[in-house]
Amino acid sequence: MPSIKKAILLNKADSVATALSQIQKGDVVDIIYNNETVNRLIALDDIEIYHKIAVVPIQSGNNVYKYGEVIGKAIKSIEIGQCVHIDNIESVRGKK
């Protein structure tokens, strides 16, 4: 049985949580908000410590939320449990 990992959610409205340890594909991940487990999901990718995991599905072109704010938009569709990083999201600001 794979070990249970943790990721923290910074705002209830967020679409991503931050991994608190190295996560391997197939790991069970508890999503922690205010020191309580609010969700449990399966990692679909390997995720580095402090990198992001999707807690909701995100359509390509849609905003991605962390801290309850927009941190960019998805450039691919992202499923729950996928790693969220520069391969699938990008900045909206600072460019045309």
Partner: peptide, 11 residues
């Protein structure tokens, strides 16, 4: 270190 976008860094 896990920061993906300018906005994420700024926030």
């Amino acid at each position: 270190g896990g920061l993906s976008t300018l906005e994420e860094k700024s926030l």
